[in-house]
Amino acid sequence: MSSRKGRRDAARVVREQIAREKRRKRTLWTTIAAVLVLVIAGGIGWAVYSSQKSDDFTAPPGANDAGTGIVQGTGPVTIDLYEDYLCPACKQFQQINGETLNQLVTEGKAKLVFHPVAFLNRFSTTEYSTRSSAASGCAAQGGKFREFTDQLFAKQPPEGGAGLSNDELVDIGAGVGLNRDEFASCVSDGTYRSWTEHVTDEASKAGVTGTPTIKINGSELRDRSPEGIRAAVEAAGK
């Protein structure tokens, strides 16, 4: 090994060391930058969500004490029904079980608490789930919650579109006997939007992850047939 080559090698080692040090620093700074970007992004998400959230709400007349749903009837057994007006399975559920539920209420066997949750806002371009639920609060104010709900399911728009417009909601409301002007201003002001948010949040907290969900005295019912519901109510009422 010549000394000349030795010197060249030594110089190369030093150069490599300097380069390695430069790389180490660069890696450190880009790492810090990347982690900062991610942390800030997460913080922005939380801030945006917090600013969207409203803490106070006014429950419409006819709501339960917790303000999480509209009550029909006074029976000893409590039926909690969680539905989204945009959910096709809910429409189907209403067609199959609506009659039975009404009977149980009028027979005085059960109290029906209807929770109009807005789970499916992403499936319409206009937040139809929230708008229709808030409108149902307006209908409750006018004492026509059940009639309005039945009509909303009967005229349910398809998922993925714009849903029914506020004007169409007002037409439906007027059609079931609500005062058009009062109802229209309630719908366009979004009076019960924060209530809808409360209903939806509380449903999630109660472990409801899908619609329709039906609970009899607090426990979820898997058999969603008229017979199943009736049997569960009879059993719970004993």
Partner: peptide, 17 residues
Amino acid sequence: TVIGAALPFVELALGLL
């Protein structure tokens, strides 16, 4: 709810990086 609010933004930021 905190995780759910932060996650989409973290995912977008990761995507951009």
